[in-house]
Design a protein around this nucleic acid. Structure first.
Lengths: 154, 154
DNA sequence: TATTGTTATACTCTATAACTATA
DNA sequence: TATAGTTATAGAGTATAACAATA
């Protein structure tokens, strides 16, 4: 018999929720002709001080080899710029363009409007505490992850 | 310039957290010689009234074809039973064994002890509200998902 | 004809290794 | 010798299609 005193594993509660959130994002991304990784890249470049491709890969938890196609495409569409670093010509400095930021903001607005659908199941207090707690746990992630890397994001 | 009034997307906050939770589970699962899907199957069979393979696949969000190997292995190890349904001989009725339940409980205990590491970042109030809100959102998943299927879990 | 469980195939991701150009 | 970026290859994981047995 199942033990009612057990709570579900955190991962088991979160995984299906994430699956639905991603499924809801896909049509929005498709409508704007951008991939999930492409969107993640734009968000990372807009919000942080990430400059090099290696730092970007680390920041978004991707392998440095698997974001190159996305960077190529984003650059071809004029959504990001890749300029050689004069101080170290191995490095290519990344920057989001105005067009890239506009696209990212449009996509993000739509996605967050869709997420209200989920958050509306919570009371105002629950919502506030939930988002804060989630941010805390997520921030813990970043702190732990940062320790394993070189600590700098440029 | 980044707009500070934007909150991160829910998916963007949850995804890295889930990745870490899964990474923390893997050594536990490996120590008990069971795969992630195998564990998910045991949890589903222990806690609900799922009986057929098709219902199980739907319940855990997997394709019916991709759980067969796991079911084979779980059965070989005596952790589940697969018996033909006398009422419909196409169907094989699934049931967790005592050994399966014992393994599942042992793994679950270890996993949840590990999760305290994350939850300890929250205050008692935050923790309570967070888990309740997460359960609510996750329950919403199940309601929405159930509507898309046949409504019965047997 | 539809459905359960199964197998085989193809496809999509991802990780690994190897290469270049710089340092 | 080590590192940033790149490319090519191989592997894992997944979805799709087709099959046999039964309804």
């Amino acid at each position: 018999m199942a033990d009612r005193s057990r709570r579900p594993d955190l991962a088991a509660m979160i995984a299906p929720l994430l699956r639905e959130l991603i499924a809801a994002e896909e049509p929005v991304l498709a409508a704007h002709g951008i991939s999930m990784w492409g969107y993640v890249v734009l968000v990372a470049l807009d919000g942080s001080s990430v400059r090099t491709q290696a730092a970007l890969a680390a920041a978004i938890g991707a392998d440095k080899t698997r974001i190159i196609r996305d960077l190529d495409e984003l650059q071809e569409r004029g959504l990001i710029e890749r300029t050689p670093d004069p101080d170290d010509r191995r490095v290519r400095l990344l920057a989001i363009t105005d067009a890239g930021r506009a696209l990212k903001n449009a996509v993000q607005d739509e996605i967050q409007r869709g997420e209200e659908h989920w958050l509306s199941e919570l009371s105002a207090d629950e919502r506030k505490t939930f988002l804060r707690a989630l941010g805390r746990l997520s921030a813990g992630d970043r702190r732990r992850a940062a320790r394993g890397r070189n600590g700098d994001t440029t």
